[in-house]
Amino acid sequence: MRPKSVISLFRKDLLLEMRQQYALYGVMLYVLSTVFVLYLTMDQPVAETWNALFWVMQLFVCINAVAKSFLQESRGRMLYFYTIASPSEFVIAKVLYNLLLMAGMNGLTLLLFVAFMGNPTDSGWLFAGISFLGALGLSLIFTMLAAIASKAMQQASLMAILGFPVIMPQLLLLMRLSKLAFSETFTAGADVGIVWLLLALDASVLLLTLILFPFLWKD
């Protein structure tokens, strides 16, 4: 694996995004209109509802944002990548790109949530940090699932079906952890334990992606 080709593949994704901005704006508009719908259906939810809505929102934004990362590659282009890069280079570039995308969307969602639905957290920065940790986990898992779903028909809906049972434990952990930002007291060390658990899960997802992606790659 050469870092150089990872970087150039990553730059290619970034460049494509800059050139065809409709996809990026599409996801941003999705975030905006969903938050707006939530805002219209309820005013200023209590902390627990706010937290739950935020994470469910993150889940759907992630599905929409990450899904297109493999869809936009046509067969011919995949064949071309196949000749110039190794599967692990290709998938790492995708993971990095999705991380960046998801981090951006996470920031946007957070901003809009605070703007429209108020800020019930006691420590906004802590919540922001936890949400970025969540964005990391979500984008890692859904990159692999997007790669799997891109081989099948009806990719977008399939991704949700494939992803939900797999993501549930992470989401539960994150919701639990984010209660830190709402001043809930944890037993000593439990919060750090959850962070390590999440990082270990992320590492194992990355490892599995590196092992399994080569099998999806050759057609």
Binding site: I141, M144, I148, A149, K151, A152, M153, Q154, L158, I161, L162, P165, V166, M168, P169, L201, S204, V205, L208, L212, F215, L216, D219
Partner: peptide
Amino acid sequence: ILRDSVTDMDKRARVSAVYNIFAYAMLFPS
């Protein structure tokens, strides 16, 4: 559902095997 949504037989086998392993490995920690 994944199996049914891939028509090509070899591809179906490969994709579903990958999902099987990935999901199973995620299931156990949970």
